[in-house]
Design a protein around this nucleic acid. Structure first.
Lengths: 223, 223, 223, 223
DNA sequence: AATGAATGAGCCTTCATTCAT
DNA sequence: GATGAATGAAGGCTCATTCAT
């Protein structure tokens, strides 16, 4: 009883891993079911059996990727009670960058999401609600602590100005590599990058949305 | 001799325009030469006749796009002699956004470049040297005026922090649309966006690279 | 030992019922063993286990259908001793129509046979000998009582003229529905239809094979 | 200019002929595009090029078949002014049988229509309006002359009783062949069959719908 | 007795490309 | 210079069937 289940899991899992790689390398359309099955050592019909569809496999890959990312780098930026908003923003940025730049398994997570943003395939809707919106709300909370409440438009712009600095390294990796061949974009870069983005953002936010009162109205919020 | 040449040019031109639209909408792979020829009112074999290849057409489209973009929105941010760096940065950002968000002809320029960044097809190398690096150098000049000289790493980070805020609106358009359904990302948004990004950037740069401290102690980086 | 046998019978039986419905609805080819097993609540491999083959299941379904049909609507048109041939013909027609139009279990009997006639799959040979020829012989007997003995050709033509009027409602149901959208072909129609066919047939037979003329001059045939 | 057109016509025509045969032999689903192209000596993609679809080819085959049938056996049953209704009915039946039983080109016409009736694929709707309803209306006219006006239900039943006797020979050919192996269903049979059906029908109609007045006022048609 | 994972053949369709004109 | 018919490779998917348990 255990063995077939394991076997089931094994083939399914091999398909997920192989599909993640191939989808990330070539994109949804260019990736072929044949190539995925070949890499997974599975039969051509295995995708249909386990995931019904190429699209079904793709969706499953997304779920799997998000699962892994959250498990490895939990979305945890501390609590407002014990940490000042600057530290929490830094924690958010660092977590975000790690989830994106982590070369561990699944290494294709970031590429996959970048692709999906440029060319949505239907898996995006779920991704937005499950993975992106929660992070956006968390970031909104931190920004609110930093500069006070903002209307939707401002909050959107502010959040984007934070997030885009992180994501860009992945989305434009090919250009950056060509523009600065000397640059190694590895984990060692991560710490410095976090500092840069955090400092840049905190100052930018403060400049665009200057806190009215120095005590910042909800002076008691943090700490 | 003049007429056939004109005819030649006409068909060729219609193909370029049609291909630009279709490639921008669907990407290289998903775009079909059939669809392009149909939109161009040309024969199915016209692509092979005029550009030898689908890839050849794609490359030609890129050259044409760059040409058009430069003509319509010349990369002109004023001269250091007559304008302060803040104004010039604002001009750079506005020009950048316009080239990307402009719905005029060729409307597909920005989309095409965004795609190429995520999924390079070989046309990227030329694109980087011809179109991207010049803009990077120009931006570097403005930043240097704002905060003084930086080493390559810092200059790269600073530039990216500027550019990514512009590009992100295109590269993550699908996500933004889903996250904020109410948002209309049209030209009216452009002016406000320019203001936000410019202010955010100027403050961010000033904080991370305080102009007074030539030693480039990064004030904002706590750790 | 009793339980597995019962289980065996139960699954087997559910497969037969489900297969009958699906084969009748979609035909042999278009019916999938997956759909049959799903409807039967059985495993995908159950068909091969119990019937070796899709074809084996199909054959078994035919046997089962014939069995059921005979049990529900026994081919019983009374005896020559106690009923006049007109009544017996009417009984034959009504029975025939009921076997075909009956929506009860197994409702698919008639549909299945109609399909098999148009597209024989190998089960037809047995069907002809077991189910069709007996009915043909019975009908021949009734016709003989009505108009006297006929040679094979005439008997064939006469029988067909009776049977075809019944079967046509099934075989051309799709056309009839399109031609007369208002028509509801349900049980209420059955009684009236029986009357029409019987009257039409009795008069037709009498005209073509006038009982008086033993020489079988066909009165209605002008040439 | 003539040659390519001819070539076009040639391949297209070969496909139509081959498809007619294969569709008639195996039905829409079981027929494979490969088999059709093979028999037509055409490339596998030719179907897509000329007819867009397997379904498109099928529809085209139907149109072609109907065209041929009408050209070879025009629907002409004489005029009420110069011929008595009995003769016209006989002409109708003979024409109907010839269109169905004609072994000339396209020999597959009848099989195709029989199949379509049992298992409609979407081509039936057009077939009904273009080919079947006109014939039904013509037959209705003849019946009206024979027995007076009937309500829709009676007219439907009467028409069916005529038509089914013709069609049955094709729809149940497999059964008839097994039931009467000696029977050769060829053209020689056609004349005799026409006589039988006509006589049978005329008497049947007269019996079921007895004309009250000789002048054919169907005042009393038992309603 | 029965299961469910896995298989491989084959189908329809699409597509960039070529070739004769 | 330009066309449109024709090609062949390949892709996603379905399906009956098998195999280990």
């Amino acid at each position: 009883m255990a063995t077939p289940n394991l076997q089931h899991t094994a083939t399914r899992q091999r398909l997920l891993d192989a599909a993640g790689e191939v989808f990330a390398e070539r994109g949804f359309r260019a990736a072929t079911v044949r190539a995925i099955c070949l890499r997974a050592g599975a039969n051509i019909a295995a995708v249909n059996y386990h995931f019904h569809d190429k699209q079904g496999l793709y969706t499953a890959v997304f779920g799997y990727a998000h699962e892994c990312a959250v498990v490895r780098h939990p979305i945890n930026v501390g609590s407002p009670q014990v940490q000042d908003p600057q530290s929490r923003l830094r924690a958010f940025i660092k977590g975000f960058l790690m989830r994106i730049l982590d070369q561990g398994r699944p290494a294709w997570h970031g590429k996959l999401m970048a692709r999906e943003m440029v060319e949505p395939t239907g898996a995006l809707d779920e991704l937005v609600e499950k993975a992106i919106r929660p992070q956006f709300l968390q970031l909104s909370g931190i920004i609110r602590e930093l500069v006070g409440d903002l209307d939707e438009t401002d909050m959107r712009r502010a959040s984007i100005s934070v997030v885009c600095q992180c994501l860009f390294y992945h989305q434009a990796r090919s250009v950056i590599t060509r523009l600065f061949p000397a640059l190694l974009m590895d984990v060692s870069e991560l710490e410095a990058l976090t500092g840069h983005i955090a400092a840049f953002t905190i100052a930018g936010l403060a400049a665009v949305y200057p806190p009215r009162a120095r005590g910042r109205a909800r002076a008691g919020v943090h700490r």
